[in-house]
Deep mutational scan, measured.
Amino acid sequence: PDDLEKRARELLKRGKNPDEIREYLRNAGYDQSQAEEALKRAL
Results as ranks from 00 to 15, higher is better:
40 K>V: 10
27 N>P: 00
8 A>D: 00
33 S>C: 09
8 A>S: 04
24 Y>E: 13
26 R>K: 13
9 R>M: 10
10 E>D: 13
10 E>M: 04
9 R>T: 09
11 L>H: 03
26 R>A: 11
5 E>A: 14
39 L>T: 04
6 K>Y: 10
16 K>S: 10
25 L>W: 04
29 G>R: 01
15 G>P: 00
33 S>M: 14
20 E>Q: 09
39 L>K: 00
37 E>S: 08
14 R>N: 15
12 L>W: 02
2 D>M: 11
42 A>Q: 02
40 K>G: 09
16 K>C: 12
40 K>M: 13
20 E>M: 05
8 A>P: 00
30 Y>G: 03
9 R>Y: 06
26 R>V: 14
43 L>P: 01
9 R>K: 12
23 E>F: 03
33 S>Q: 14
32 Q>I: 13
30 Y>V: 09
2 D>F: 10
4 L>N: 02
42 A>G: 03
11 L>A: 05
23 E>N: 06
40 K>H: 13
2 D>I: 12
39 L>E: 00
32 Q>G: 10
37 E>V: 08
29 G>P: 01
36 E>C: 07
16 K>H: 14
40 K>D: 09
22 R>A: 08
35 A>I: 15
9 R>D: 05
32 Q>D: 14
7 R>W: 15
3 D>H: 10
17 N>D: 11
40 K>N: 12
25 L>G: 00
31 D>W: 03
35 A>N: 01
20 E>S: 04
1 P>M: 15
13 K>G: 13
22 R>K: 10
22 R>V: 15
15 G>M: 03
16 K>G: 06
12 L>E: 02
36 E>A: 05
29 G>E: 01
38 A>P: 01
41 R>D: 04
6 K>D: 10
13 K>A: 14
14 R>V: 13
34 Q>F: 07
35 A>S: 08
30 Y>Q: 02
28 A>H: 11
11 L>V: 01
37 E>P: 02
18 P>T: 06
34 Q>N: 06
17 N>Y: 06
27 N>C: 08
43 L>A: 06
4 L>C: 09
30 Y>R: 01
35 A>H: 01
17 N>I: 06
3 D>F: 13
22 R>M: 15
31 D>L: 07
39 L>H: 00
23 E>Q: 08
24 Y>A: 14
7 R>D: 06
6 K>E: 12
31 D>H: 07
19 D>T: 08
10 E>F: 02
2 D>G: 11
4 L>R: 03
39 L>P: 00
34 Q>C: 11
41 R>E: 05
13 K>Y: 07
28 A>V: 07
42 A>D: 01
23 E>W: 04
34 Q>G: 05
26 R>D: 04
21 I>L: 03
23 E>P: 00
25 L>Y: 04
23 E>H: 05
11 L>Q: 05
24 Y>F: 13
27 N>K: 11
27 N>W: 07
37 E>Q: 10
3 D>L: 08
18 P>K: 07
25 L>F: 15
24 Y>R: 04
29 G>S: 02
28 A>C: 11
25 L>D: 00
19 D>K: 08
31 D>A: 08
2 D>P: 09
1 P>L: 14
41 R>G: 06
13 K>M: 11
40 K>A: 12
5 E>Y: 15
17 N>Q: 09
33 S>N: 13
13 K>L: 13
33 S>G: 13
14 R>W: 09
22 R>L: 15
7 R>S: 09
3 D>V: 09
2 D>C: 10
25 L>S: 00
17 N>T: 15
33 S>P: 08
1 P>F: 14
25 L>E: 00
36 E>W: 03
4 L>G: 07
40 K>E: 13
17 N>S: 15
40 K>F: 08
4 L>I: 12
4 L>W: 06
21 I>W: 01
21 I>M: 01
4 L>F: 05
7 R>I: 15
27 N>V: 09
4 L>A: 14
20 E>N: 03
27 N>Y: 06
6 K>V: 10
10 E>T: 04
7 R>F: 15
36 E>V: 04
29 G>N: 02
7 R>Q: 14
4 L>Q: 03
28 A>W: 09
32 Q>F: 12
3 D>Q: 09
3 D>P: 07
31 D>R: 03
2 D>H: 11
16 K>F: 15
17 N>R: 10
16 K>M: 15
21 I>Y: 02
40 K>I: 12
29 G>F: 02
43 L>C: 09
23 E>L: 04
36 E>L: 04
43 L>R: 05
35 A>K: 00
28 A>P: 01
38 A>Q: 02
16 K>E: 06
